[in-house]
Design a binder for these strands. Structure first.
Length: 809
DNA sequence: GTTAGGACCAATC
DNA sequence: CTCAGACGAATTCGG
DNA sequence: CCGAATTCGTCTGAGGATTGGTCCTAAC
């Protein structure tokens, strides 16, 4: 019966909806910041909370390329500034030529020139009033005009091995308004961030950041670590466990208090603007401050953020709040915006770790270092090769030693080429784990690995555990994100000495920690694992037992195994450990290459309460190098398999305003199933992924017409705090097809409450939007009873396994 | 002063 | 964890 | 064979359920 239900779903999914061409709705990746927000004092001010501003923001949001060009043009006009001191921005070389999207042939020729001269200058107040010296702009414009749009500065045709990033025309020293050795003003960084945020091209972003690094290296190298940390929003290595303890709620309060505005007013602005940082900046700019506080410094902001993170105990929130307010009060231009974003943990400027690492590498190539040619000696292709080489070194080193402090110290002291000798893989320091790329099915896997040896392993539904055994016997356990989980897993620490064979003195292994029933040995669901104590657990009172399923070896007896092929690493793994049943085992693996055998193996894995398979090459391209190819493994999860899916038809009953790039549309919806027994709609999950831009627009438009003032009496929805309640409610009017990986007993959602658990309802795990079901009425939505049935039908829920769903494909 | 519950956060997937 | 969009590089197509 | 078109890989930032830990507040 259930199978037939699934079958029905499969058919339903088969007829594809007309795919919307993404080009039909040109939405710029980055919305230029609204002028109204930046210009506080100088212009007739329009508060963002006022309706006019909202309308304006809305228009801007749909801006096409034209608008961005306008922005560029406006930014070109240099200005004077009332706010000293003003460090000049690093100048970008004009290697990049804007390639206007082929669909949009309407852009004017002017866009080119504008772009060449000042690719990232926008009309924001902060940047409009920059120092962009006219001479500089003119200088930059000239060679560009001469070279033409499809050639780089040297006039070489684009396409061959033309310069990736030219790195000309940046006067490292002149960019600094501070004297060498003095602290770098935070304003310098804030302006760089501003330019980066306005720049969609990654190569130019890389260049902007690299130039900022160059200037700081040349003048105040002590500030390089703070700079890197602020740019990537990492206060300390993950394994040191330093957390800000600040979230949106606290930030909203802090902003409202600093700016003397109500929380409600801030929230109202958020609806329009979609970014608390911008709201803070706008509110600050409008404030009249009597005494001017000392300008913020890069190292000062960094230090304060760390202090905030380390604040704990009685009145901690108050003390954190005070520090935040201090910074915000001292903030000028866009400083407030980026301070707020740092505290929120989302810089959203289009530059993240990977790009920052590249910039860092490039900066050191372009800076004279011990035993290296002066950068001036490097030109053209030689320079490019050098940049690429440096990039690889830095990324590689970072993946083996994810610690900016050590890397930057080593870079400053010894330069790039010596870096690997000073920051290498060590037991006790986590390695960035290798990740897997999702695939849509076995056929894709076979496609990809058609001509090389590969192996399949069970994909266990637990938690990644990178286990280090150090010389001397100490054991450390790290998570997927390099957090130190040692005190969470004293049981793993205890089993390691028993598991290693006698020749092993130190080892790093990669594994999945999975909850198991010690009596039966059965694998338990992830939900059970997550109830384990997280900190300072003691071996004696561990409620949930764990079995470690080891699948890789990265390091053995002082030697790195990262460069060796998987076949070899796996052999060493098996040779180094002995199985301790229900405590440490090897991941179930099969080297079979024929389709039927793999299919069978996949089915078995699912019957064994696993998520599916991991597929990895054994010999070629089989090293453990997350830096070079982070997704060299493939995963086949059961929810991608036709016939094994949990697909539902659900009704959107509420929605949340989107933030960031979803500003102006709903960012997420609350979905419900239908319970015909008492004619209610019971919430089963929120959903915020699977929509393309067009769907976001259409759904927003369509459902905005169905808003009701209050939620209906027959909506059974979570008992959330006010701050989590949907921003709007809808009448039941649409049915959406939604895919999920699993169903879980929910502490908040209401679906099928009473049918499986006496009080709790059921929720979807990893829900994603597939399409609107125009063919279904709201009362044809998946019923509460069906949800319960689907829950009970899951492999891990079943007692007597009758999972013979193989017939479905 | 102590404790219980709630709000919020950070972490896993 | 899932997903979409953007850029840039690689590869394929067509004259 | 070269330039244009297309595909592919990488990176970023939107968003999900669920849990334990921390701090605050209100009641005792």
């Amino acid at each position: 019966m259930i199978t037939s239900f699934f079958k029905k779903k499969v058919e339903a999914t088969a007829d594809t909806p007309a795919p919307a061409s993404a080009s039909s709705v040109p939405r710029p990746a980055k919305r230029p910041i609204d002028e109204a927000l930046g210009e506080g004092a100088s212009k007739t001010d329009v508060s963002p909370s006022e309706p006019t501003a909202g309308a304006k923001a809305g228009r801007r949001r749909k801006a096409t390329i034209h608008d961005s060009d306008d922005e560029d043009g406006a930014g070109n006009a240099a200005d004077t500034t009332p706010v000293p001191p003003l460090p000049p921005l690093p100048e970008v070389s004009n290697s990049g030529t804007r390639v206007v999207a082929p669909i949009n042939t309407t852009s004017e020729p002017t866009s080119m020139e504008m772009d060449e001269t000042a690719p990232s200058v926008t009309a924001t107040a902060a940047l409009a009033q920059t120092d962009a010296k006219p001479e500089l702009a003119a200088k930059a414009a000239q060679p560009a005009a001469a070279a033409g749009p499809s050639a780089n500065a040297k006039g070489k045709p684009v396409g061959t091995t033309a310069a990736k990033i030219a790195y000309n025309k940046y006067d490292v020293e002149a960019a600094a308004t501070w004297k060498a050795g003095e602290p770098v003003p935070y304003l310098f960084l804030a302006r760089v961030f501003g330019r980066i945020e306005a720049e969609p091209k990654r190569l130019l972003i890389t260049e902007l950041m690299a130039n900022a690094f160059r200037t700081v290296i040349a003048t105040s190298p002590d500030d390089l670590l703070p700079l890197m940390s602020l740019a990537t929003n990492k206060l300390a290595p993950a394994y040191e466990g330093i957390e800000l303890g600040i979230g949106d709620s606290i930030m909203i309060k802090a902003v409202s208090e600093t700016c003397g505005r109500s929380v409600a007013a801030i929230k109202a602005d958020m609806e329009e603007v979609g970014d608390l940082g911008e709201v803070a900046m706008a509110s600050r700019t409008k404030q009249v401050t009597l005494s001017k506080p000392k300008p913020l410094q890069v190292r000062g902001v960094y230090k304060t953020l760390k202090e905030i993170a380390l604040t704990s105990g009685h009145e901690a929130m108050k003390r954190k709040g005070d520090k935040i307010k201090q910074m915000l009060v001292a903030a000028q231009e866009k400083e407030a915006q980026y301070i707020v974003r740092s505290l929120q943990g989302k810089m959203r400027i289009g530059l993240a770790e990977q790009t920052a690492l590249v910039s860092l590498a490039h900066a050191f190539v372009l800076t004279a270092s011990p035993g290296r040619d002066a950068p001036a000696a490097l030109r053209g292709e030689a320079l490019q090769e050098r940049l690429i080489e440096a990039e690889a070194i830095v990324k590689q080193v970072y993946s083996e030693m994810p610690n900016y402090e050590l890397i930057i110290k080593a870079l400053l002291a010894h330069g790039i080429d010596e870096l690997p000798q000073h920051a290498r893989l060590t037991a006790g320091v986590p390695v960035k784990p290798m990740l897997a790329k999702p695939t849509k099915g076995l056929s894709e896997v076979l496609d990809r690995f058609s001509n090389c040896a590969f192996t399949c392993e069970y994909k266990y539904d637990g938690e990644r555990a990178q286990i280090h055994l150090l010389e001397g016997g100490m054991v450390k356990v790290y998570s997927r994100n390099s957090e130190d989980n040692t005190t969470k897993y004293p049981d793993i620490a205890a089993l390691m000495p028993r598991a290693i064979k006698s020749h092993v003195t130190s080892i790093i292994l990669d594994s999945e920690a999975v909850a198991v029933d010690t009596k039966t040995g059965a694998i338990l669901p992830f939900q059970v694992l997550s109830t384990r104590k997280r900190k300072d657990a003691s071996v004696d009172d561990i409620g949930v037992k764990v079995c470690v399923f080891a699948f890789d070896l990265l390091y053995l007896n002082g030697e790195s195994y990262l460069q060796r092929p998987l076949a070899e690493r796996r052999a060493a793994l098996h040779a180094s450990l002995q199985v301790l049943p229900r405590e440490l085992e090897f991941a179930q693996a099969s080297d079979a290459a024929d389709v039927d055998a793999i299919q069978e193996f996949l089915l078995e894995s699912i019957k064994g309460n696993c998520e599916g398979l991991m597929i990895k090459t054994l010999a070629e391209n089989a090293t453990y190098e997350p830096s070079r190819r982070s997704l060299n493994w493939l995963k086949v999860k059961k929810d991608y398999l036709a016939g094994m899916t949990d697909s539902c038809d659900l009704v959107p009953i509420g929605a949340y305003y989107g933030k960031g790039k979803r500003t102006g549309v709903y960012g997420a919806y609350l979905l419900a199933c239908y319970n015909p027994d008492d004619e209610t709609y019971e919430s089963v999950c929120k959903i915020g992924t699977g929509f393309n831009d067009e769907a976001l627009q259409t759904l927003h438009k369509g459902l905005s017409e169905r808003i009701i003032q209050q939620k209906r009496a027959y909506y059974k929805t979570p008992n959330w705090a006010d701050s989590s309640q949907p921003d709007v409610w809808f009448e039941p009017c649409q049915v959406w097809e939604v895919l999920a990986a699993d169903l879980s007993i929910s502490p908040v959602h209401m679906a099928a409450a009473g049918l499986v658990d006496p009080a709790k309802g059921i929720a979807l795990r990893f829900p994603r939007f597939l399409r609107v079901r125009d063919d279904k009425g709201v009362e044809d939505a998946t019923s509460a009873e069906q949800i319960a049935e689907m829950y009970n039908n899951q492999a891990c829920t079943k007692t007597s396994s009758t999972l013979e769903g193989g017939d479905d494909y």
